[in-house]
Design a protein around this nucleic acid. Structure first.
Length: 452
RNA sequence: GGGGGUGUAGUUCAGUUGGUUAGAACGCUGCCCUGUCACGGCAGAGGUCGCGAGUUCGAGUCUCGUCGCUCCCGCCA
C-alpha cells in the first residue's frame, strides 16, 4: 500500500541544482528496482555483525529487507557496528536478488547514515524472538514501540481500511457524513455513564453516542447520514471488550419500512468491507496472522431473542443475553459456518425509550449484530411519532424537561427512520482473533488507563 | 460494583522445607568470526526481589498492610 507521489517515478535519479538526488522507495518496491541504486529509509530491525560481512535488516511501513555490508566498504562496515536496534537510518545501495535464497531480495549497501539513534536497551523488543511478548502494561506504556511490530502495524492499517471502506460503501449509497458535537448539555441516553466536564461556568457531558444528533440530521431532511467519531463511556467496565473512549461507526437512515431495512444495509456493507479487506490485505493477514479472511454470504442469519434463549436453554426472556450466552450463540452459528448473526426482537425492558416498539408484543424493532460471539452493533427503527415517543420516555421513568430540545425534532414532521452504532475496534478484534480491545486500538483508554 | 490471580535484571521467567555469593534465556558492553538469517564463539556488566511494617538467629520465600498490574462477571459498541 505504498502511496506514490504523483509527478515523479520512483527509483529515478533526479537532479536538484545539478546535484544527483535519489528519491526514497519503499522496501516493498525493491524487487522492481533490481540493478538500480536505491534509497531506503526505516528502522533497524535486526543486526548481524560478522567479521567480513554484516547484515542489517531494515524495516519500514511496507516490510523488511536484508541489507548487506561488505568489509571492502570500510566506512559503512565500521559504521554499522555503531548502530543500535530501532535506530532510524537511511541507506543507499544496489538492489539485487539475494544470491542465497530464491525469491528474496536484498540491498548491497554503499552508504548508510543514522537519522536518529535508538538507546541501546529497548524497554520492549520490537523484533520478537521465541514469541515472547512483554507484559501488557509495559507494551502499552511504550505503545509507539509496540506498534512498530509488523503485526500491530497491520492492525492500524486495517482500522484505517475499515474507515475507508465503511465510508466508501455508504457514500456510494448516497449517505452524507455529519460531525456531531461531543459535548452535550444533557445525557444522550441514560444518565449513569457519562463523563462530566466543565463547560465554562456550567457542567457538560461528553457524548456517549451521537444518537440524538443523528436523529436531528434526519429531522433536518438529510435522509441518509453516517458518522465516524469518538464516543465516551464512564462505565467502570473491566472486560476485554470495553474502552472508555472508542470510535463509533454510525448510520441513520430515513423513510425505512422497518428495522429490516437497516439489517439489510448493514449486512451488505459488511460483505463489502470484508471483500475489500480480503482483496487488499488478505495476503498480509494470512502471512502475519495465519487467518483466511472469510467473506460471509448473504443474508446473515436472524434469530429472535426468544428463539435464542430457548436454543440456549434459558427461561429468562426479560433480560439481555449474558456474555456467556452471547459466546455460546456465536459458537452455535460458527459451527454452521456463520460468523455473523442478527439477534432480533429485543424486549422493551432492555432497550432505550427511542426504539420503535411492536404493536402486538412487548418487543422493539431492533437487533444486535453478533460477530463470532461478540456484539458489534445495536440497531433499531426509531419511534418517529412525538406522542408515542413521549409516552415511551415517561414509561421508562424519564422526564421530558432536559430533553425537550431533542423531542422538538419530532414536532414538525419526522421521517420514519432507523440506524446503528457499530464498534470498529470490536470488529477488527474479531477479524484478527485479538483477545483484548486495547490491542485493536491505536491508544487505549480504560478505567485505569489514561496514559500515554 | 463483585470475584480471582500476580509483582525477582532492560524483557520473559526459574528460585526446593525460610539458610550463607539470587540464576537462565533474549537484549546490552568488549573481543573474535567471509553470506548470516533465532548467526556462532569467548569474556563481561546489569538486582534496595513493588513499597512499608512484622515474625525469626536469618525473609525473594511466612504474616499483615499498601500500591501497581492483570483476568472473569455485571453494564455496553
Amino acid at each position: 500500500m505504498a502511496p506514490r507521489p504523483q509527478n515523479r517515478p520512483y527509483g529515478l535519479n533526479i537532479r536538484i541544482n545539478g546535484v544527483k538526488m535519489l528519491s526514497r522507495i519503499y522496501i516493498k518496491e525493491v524487487p522492481e528496482h533490481v540493478g538500480e541504486q536505491v534509497l531506503l529509509k526505516g528502522f533497524v530491525h535486526a543486526l548481524r555483525i560478522q567479521g567480513s560481512v554484516s547484515f542489517l535488516i531494515l524495516r519500514d511501513i511496507s516490510g523488511t529487507i536484508q541489507n548487506v555490508i561488505v568489509k571492502s566498504n570500510a566506512d559503512a562496515f565500521a559504521y554499522v557496528k555503531t548502530l543500535s536496534l530501532e535506530s532510524t537510518v537511511e541507506i543507499v545501495g544496489l538492489a539485487k536478488k539475494d544470491p542465497t535464497r530464491e525469491g528474496r531480495y536484498e540491498v548491497e549497501v554503499e552508504t548508510i547514515k543514522a537519522l536518529a539513534m535508538s538507546e541501546p536497551e529497548l524497554p520492549i523488543a520490537v523484533n520478537e524472538k521465541n514469541e515472547v511478548e512483554a507484559a501488557t502494561d509495559i507494551r502499552h506504556q511504550y505503545r509507539f514501540l509496540d506498534l512498530r511490530k509488523p503485526k500491530n502495524m497491520l492492525i492500524m492499517k486495517l482500522s484505517s481500511a475499515f474507515d475507508r471502506y465503511y465510508r466508501e460503501y455508504l457514500f456510494e449509497q448516497g449517505f452524507v457524513e455529519v460531525h456531531t458535537p461531543k459535548t452535550m448539555p444533557t445525557p444522550s441516553e441514560s444518565s449513569s455513564d457519562l463523563f462530566e466536564v466543565k463547560y465554562f461556568d456550567r457542567p457538560a457531558y461528553l457524548a456517549q453516542s451521537p444518537q440524538l444528533y443523528k436523529q436531528m440530521a434526519i429531522a433536518s431532511g438529510l435522509e441518509k447520514v453516517l458518522e465516524v467519531g469518538p464516543i465516551f463511556r464512564a462505565e467502570k467496565s473491566f472486560t476485554s471488550r470495553h474502552a472508555t473512549e472508542c470510535t463509533s461507526y454510525d448510520v441513520e437512515m430515513a423513510f425505512i419500512k422497518d428495522h429490516n431495512d437497516i439489517m439489510e444495509l448493514e449486512e451488505n456493507l459488511i460483505v463489502y468491507i470484508l471483500t475489500k479487506i480480503k482483496e487488499n490485505y488478505g495476503d498480509e493477514i494470512k502471512a502475519i496472522y495465519g487467518i483466511d479472511v472469510n467473506v460471509p454470504s448473504l443474508p446473515f442469519p436472524r434469530i429472535t431473542m426468544a428463539e435464542a434463549k430457548k436454543l440456549l436453554g434459558s427461561n429468562d426472556f426479560e433480560s439481555d443475553l449474558t456474555s456467556e450466552e452471547e459466546k455460546a450463540l456465536g459458537d452455535y452459528f460458527e459451527k454452521q459456518g456463520q460468523d455473523f448473526v442478527f439477534l432480533t426482537d429485543f424486549p422493551i425492558s432492555v432497550r432505550p425509550f427511542y426504539h420503535k416498539y411492536y404493536e402486538d408484543k412487548p418487543c422493539t424493532k431492533s437487533a444486535d449484530l453478533i460477530y463470532r460471539g461478540l456484539e458489534i452493533t445495536t440497531l433499531a427503527q426509531r419511534e418517529e411519532r412525538y406522542d408515542v415517543l413521549v409516552s415511551q420516555l415517561k414509561a421508562k421513568g424519564l422526564g421530558t424537561k432536559d430533553i425537550q430540545w431533542y423531542l422538538d425534532f419530532f414536532r414538525y414532521g419526522m421521517p420514519p427512520h432507523g440506524g446503528w452504532g457499530l464498534g470498529g475496534a470490536r470488529f477488527i478484534m474479531k477479524l484478527l482473533g485479538i483477545e483484548h480491545i486495547r490491542d485493536a486500538m491505536f491508544i487505549y483508554r480504560g478505567v485505569n488507563n489514561l496514559n500515554p
